[in-house]
Amino acid sequence: MQIFVKTLTGKTITLEVEPSDTIENVKAKIQDKEGIPPDQQRLIFAGKQLEDGRTLSDYNIQKESTSHLVLR
C-alpha cells in the first residue's frame, strides 16, 4: 500500500509499505529515499509519535494515510 510522509519543508514522500511493516522499516525506507538517518527521524501520526518496534497496523495507518516527519 502507499502512504505519504510530509516533511517540515512541505515536501511529500510517497512510500510503498505493508501494514505489517514496523516503524523502523518505514524509517529505513525514508533513509533510502531521502538520506536521513533513522535516528534523526521522528514520525508523527494523528498527533502521536510512532515508536520503532510497533507496526503501521498498530497505529491504524491505512493506505494513503499521511504522517509527518520531524527531524531531531
Rank of each mutant, 00 (worst) to 15 (best):
L56N: 01
Q2G: 04
M1T: 05
L50E: 01
S20R: 08
S57I: 08
D52T: 05
Q49L: 15
T12N: 05
K11C: 11
P37K: 07
L43I: 09
R72W: 15
I3K: 00
V5M: 03
P19S: 08
L43P: 01
G10F: 03
T12H: 07
I61L: 06
T14H: 07
L69R: 02
K63W: 11
R72M: 15
I23P: 01
L15Q: 00
V17S: 02
S20F: 11
T66E: 11
I30K: 00
Y59T: 02
I44A: 05
T9M: 11
S65Q: 08
L8H: 14
R54W: 10
Q62Y: 11
K29F: 05
M1N: 03
R54P: 03
Q2R: 14
S20A: 09
K33R: 10
E51G: 04
K27M: 07
G10Q: 04
Q31S: 13
T14R: 09
L56V: 07
E34W: 15
T66D: 10
L50N: 01
K29N: 03
N25W: 09
V26F: 03
Q40E: 10
V17Q: 01
K48H: 12
E18F: 14
T12I: 15
R54Y: 13
H68P: 06
T14P: 06
K11Y: 12
Q31T: 09
K48P: 01
P38K: 15
N25Q: 14
I23L: 04
L56E: 01
A28F: 12
I30C: 01
G10A: 03
E16Y: 12
G35M: 05
P38I: 15
L71P: 08
I44Q: 06
P38R: 13
Y59N: 02
K63R: 13
E34H: 07
N25F: 12
T7Q: 06
V26P: 00
D39R: 10
I61W: 04
N60I: 04
E64N: 15
E51S: 07
P38C: 09
P19E: 08
I23K: 00
K11H: 12
A46P: 01
E64K: 08
T14E: 08
R42M: 15
G53Y: 10
S57H: 09
T66A: 09
R54E: 05
L71C: 06
G47H: 05
P19D: 06
G53R: 10
H68G: 07
G10Y: 04
V26S: 00
F45Y: 13
I3A: 01
E64V: 06
Q62I: 11
D39I: 09
V17T: 03
T14F: 07
F4W: 07
Q62G: 15
R42N: 13
P37F: 05
T12A: 05
L15W: 01
T22I: 04
Q49P: 11
R42I: 15
D58P: 00
E16R: 08
Y59A: 03
G53P: 05
L69D: 02
L43H: 01
F4S: 07
V26L: 10
M1F: 15
V17M: 04
L56D: 01
F45M: 06
